[in-house]
């Protein structure tokens, strides 16, 4: 048992563990809306877009959170507006906007080769890079997102279920969607260090679909998805320490295993019934 507590002796691990648990829960919570709206690809795309913003922020010596945050939010708004105003489908718009933005980052990095190493962490996630300041940011975003989702729970639910009818019944759907884009951008930025650009989409999608296999009620789905996200984040960090593997990858693998278990459980239950 003491062996299990061993990594907590290290400050970097304590920071990483906290950040991973919070980021996992946060992604699990928002992931519910993303999966139900059939926008699973948006997390993947926006994370790539934010990477571009992060590189630019680094070049211009802006604060990472401000630069990447602004960039990510603008990308999300651009995607929403383009999908609404043209006949191009949302998935294609996401493909254009976010890949172009990612390409900006890659182009800058390849031009100035000396940055390449430090951006590995941004791509695949790295616990070593988590500072106490990062933990504070993840915690802050968790509180903010939780409060916003509670405050607009009814509006978010109705808009996600059927946006047009929600509009008729008095929901300001454009406003709700902008708020959601903002919360998503904040979540992605806060989680980027831990999970990495390339793996964050899984953390948004897997807890939500795992929870979906276990419940049919929306409120329980949100709670369960957040708990699964947080639990797998914590467990993934421990595995990452012992396996000496990238934190983002181990968290996603733990989540995938959890999803497999939920599938198997459902299969067994269906056979028993």
């Amino acid at each position: 048992m003491t062996e299990l507590w061993r990594p907590f002796a290290f400050e970097f691990f304590r920071n990483g563990f906290l950040a991973a648990t919070l980021a996992g829960g946060l992604c699990g919570l928002l992931g519910v809306f993303i999966v139900l709206r059939g926008m699973s690809y948006i997390g993947h795309g926006l994370a790539h877009a934010i990477f571009g913003g992060a590189v630019v922020a680094f070049m211009m010596q802006w604060n990472f959170y401000v630069g990447a945050g602004l960039w990510g939010f603008l990308a999300a708004v651009l995607i929403n507006e383009m999908a609404r105003r043209t006949t191009i489908k949302a998935d294609a718009v996401i493909g254009v906007v976010t890949t172009a933005s990612f390409a900006v980052g890659v182009a800058i990095i390849s031009r100035y080769r000396r940055f390449t190493r430090s951006f590995d962490a941004a791509l695949f996630g790295n616990v070593l890079g988590v500072s106490p300041q990062d933990v504070v940011v993840v915690a802050g975003v968790t509180v903010l997102v939780t409060l916003m989702i509670l405050a607009f729970y009814k509006h978010l639910l109705f808009t996600t279920f059927d946006a047009e009818t929600a509009h008729v019944y008095g929901v300001r759907t454009t406003w709700v969607e902008t708020l959601f884009a903002l919360l998503l951008a904040a979540t992605l930025i806060a989680s980027l260090q831990i999970l990495g650009v390339t793996l964050i989409a899984a953390a948004l999608v897997i807890p939500a679909i795992t929870a979906r296999l276990l419940t049919d009620a929306f409120d329980r789905l949100m709670l369960l998805s957040a708990l699964i996200g947080a639990g797998t984040g914590a467990l993934g960090m421990l595995v990452s320490f012992y396996a000496d593997a990238a934190s983002g990858a181990t968290i996603v693998l733990v989540q995938a295993a959890g999803f497999g278990l939920a599938l198997a459980w459902r299969g067994l239950r269906a056979r028993a019934a």
Binding site: K154, L157, Y169, G170, R212, T215, A217, F218
Partner: peptide
């Protein structure tokens, strides 16, 4: 979509 009858009907009360 994961909603129950009750949850759908209550949506109408949003105003």
């Amino acid at each position: 979509f994961p909603v129950t009858v009750e949850q759908v009907v209550l949506m109408g009360r949003l105003r």
